[in-house]
């Protein structure tokens, strides 16, 4: 891996780099630390002075309250189910579209692509009412698909996959055609397997987006047993009585899966983002 000699950077430079990075890590991580630690304290302890930075003893109590209030298991499942299904669908659909935009010539291609890119600029608050109207007409209110399907129309995924697909050699596709492969087999058996990093990047990005999605699920989900984590946590933000320990625990639980997903896929993520951005 290391092609250059390790002593190339002076020892002073090395120390400096480590110091800067560690300070950066502390700043990045501190709010999370505060969140984790707070989830083990009572509301009163969190708000007292000086700030509590040690681990408290109220974790189990907070968990019990949290579970009583929002039914953490069910809510967690909803979030996970929606995020996973969404990620799979959107990765599949985006890469198909990206492939088409990168490797085919057809009438209307440029217009389609322009439309897709233009939608990135629309603030989504303005679409809520018309979209909600449609969900009602379709009878989709309070279903998983109401959360999932409208958000599949995601320009970023298409863009990212197109950029990655551009570098796939045309000659390979041509050769496969001559060998008698159908168009779909070429895509699924030859092109997609080489796109792992991009797919990983997209998967993290989409999982993250859907996991934290708030406004849209809030509008279309109607009962507690369908709520996703962010919405369930928002119910704890009541008027005059807020239990901060409980909320902090809830947010900690909400953060962990994303950390894990990122840890698993981060290598692919970086390579995939690379493919998307370099040829921008």
């Amino acid at each position: 891996m290391l092609k250059r000699k390790p002593n190339e950077a002076g020892i002073l430079t090395q120390i400096l780099v480590y110091i800067v990075l560690i300070i950066g890590v502390v700043i990045s991580f501190f709010p999370f630390y505060l969140m984790f630690v707070s989830s083990t304290h009572t509301s009163g302890e969190i708000l007292s002075l000086p700030p509590k930075l040690n681990i408290g003893s109220n974790l189990i109590n907070n968990f019990k309250k949290l579970n009583d209030d929002i039914g953490i298991l069910r809510v967690f499942f909803n979030s996970l189910f929606i995020a996973v299904v969404y990620t799979i669908l959107t990765v599949l659909l985006s890469s198909m579209a990206g492939y088409a935009f990168a490797k085919f010539n057809f009438k209307g291609k440029k217009i389609f692509f322009a439309i897709v890119l233009a939608t990135i600029m629309i603030p989504n608050q303005v679409l809520l009412v018309p979209l909600f109207d449609m969900m009602n007409k379709f009878g989709w209110i309070n279903t998983y698909k109401a959360v999932l399907i409208p958000t599949l129309a995601n320009a970023f995924g298409i863009f990212l996959m197109r950029q990655n697909m551009l570098s796939f050699p045309d000659s390979v596709i041509e050769a496969a055609r001559i060998d008698g492969y159908g168009e779909f087999s070429i895509f699924f058996k030859i092109v997609l397997p080489t796109m792992r990093p991009a797919l990983g990047a997209l998967a993290i990005y989409m999982f993250m987006n859907q996991w934290n999605n708030f406004m849209w699920p809030l509008i279309v989900l109607r009962t507690k047993n369908m709520y996703t984590l962010p919405i369930a946590l928002s119910t704890l933000n009541g008027m005059s009585r807020i239990d901060y320990g409980e909320i902090m625990l809830g947010t900690t639980i909400a953060t962990l899966p994303i950390m894990i997903v990122f840890l698993i896929f981060q290598k692919q993520f970086i390579k995939g983002v690379l493919g998307g951005a370099v040829k921008g």
């Binding site: 709010p31 969140m35 902090m248």
Partner: peptide, 18 residues
């Protein structure tokens, strides 16, 4: 990498409160 990336994935409720 992970340490620096983490802030981008915070849930809004946590971000606000913290």
């Amino acid at each position: 990498r992970m340490a620096f990336f983490m802030p981008a994935v915070t849930a809004l409720v946590a971000y606000a409160l913290v």
